[in-house]
Simulated scan of single mutants.
Amino acid sequence: MTEPLDPTARAAEAAAAIARLTGVDRHDIGLTLGSGWGRAADVIGETVAVIPAEEVPGFHVSGVPGHSGTLRSIRLASGRHALVIGARTHFYEGRGVRAVVHGVRTAAAAGAGIMLLTNGAGGIDPAFRAGEPVLISDHLNLTAASPVEGANFVDLTDLYADRLRALAREAEPSLQQGVYVQLPGPHYETPAEIHYLRTIGGQIVGMSTALEAIAARQAGMEVLGLSLITNPAAGMGEDPLSHEEVLAEGKAAEPRLAELLSRVVARL
């Protein structure tokens, strides 16, 4: 399924609705808060407005437990404004790639020059333990899809911006970095697949983020990515994988992640 309206025009329509509903003409930073990261919206600044996703063109209530289903406008201490997207659409929901990256494109249309993408993910690298946040240094997009349409050749060399990662490590010097792998989902990977991903350089695995990051770069934004390691990937631990485990680990990590993200956003 694809949106009938040109995606750039759809994003501009959504941005205009957000400006009208929030009373904020421009948002400087976009944030998509994945599993475990949602509480950060309460501490990074003063909430100006909260909008149900279905009131904004192109957005849908998230079909995944753990996502808020709202858009939030936040005034930061610097006086700038952040647009928090709690209504992430995942590739496996079957709405098409345009819907997956609509939030990112809307943030760009609303004026954001920086996109901060977060997620909950499995740890392939045994150096990454459950409950630990990890900076995304690069990614492997194994969805067999792209948000870029037509003959538009987008350079992804510095996709996860060195500048922003340096600022994040100023905020938290202990942050490790790793290569994120996006697979389509919604099933978890087999141990053989995790072995393959590790062989080709993957260190973190999940079902979001890479497509959004590509769309953000196409829109001219700088991208910063952070993963919460919610569990060892298949075959890396003893317990079966479950979404309940992801939610529980995210819930336990929420206060620490909120405090971390508050310090990171203050430097962006």
Rank of each mutant, 00 (worst) to 15 (best):
G96D: 10
F59D: 04
A107Q: 14
V64H: 01
F91W: 04
V50Y: 11
L71V: 05
T70H: 14
T70K: 06
V101I: 07
G38L: 11
E46C: 02
G122S: 11
H60V: 13
M115T: 03
G38Y: 04
V84I: 15
T118L: 13
H139F: 02
V101P: 13
G45N: 09
A127R: 15
I74F: 09
V100T: 13
A49V: 00
S62F: 01
H67N: 03
P126W: 00
A53F: 02
G63I: 04
I85M: 12
P126F: 01
R80T: 08
S73D: 06
H67V: 01
T106V: 02
I136T: 05
G66R: 08
V50D: 14
I85C: 15
G123Y: 03
A77G: 14
I124R: 06
A130W: 08
V50I: 15
V48K: 10
H67P: 09
F128A: 02
V134I: 14
G36P: 13
G120R: 00
L33Y: 05
R75L: 08
V97E: 14
S137M: 09
L33T: 12
F59L: 08
F128W: 02
R72G: 01
E93C: 09
T106M: 06
A53V: 03
G113R: 12
A40M: 01
L71H: 09
D125A: 15
G34F: 00
T70S: 14
H90D: 05
I124V: 14
A109N: 07
S73Y: 02
I85V: 14
R88A: 02
A41M: 07
T106R: 02
N119H: 13
A53L: 04
V101F: 01
A99K: 07
Y92Q: 06
T118R: 13
S68E: 11
P133Q: 03
I124T: 04
G111Q: 03
E46D: 15
A112S: 12
A121P: 13
E54W: 03
A77R: 06
V48W: 00
A53S: 13
G123Q: 07
D125S: 15
P65E: 08
G96M: 08
P65Y: 02
L116N: 08
G103T: 05
R75V: 04
G66K: 07
H139L: 01
A127L: 12
A109W: 07
G69H: 05
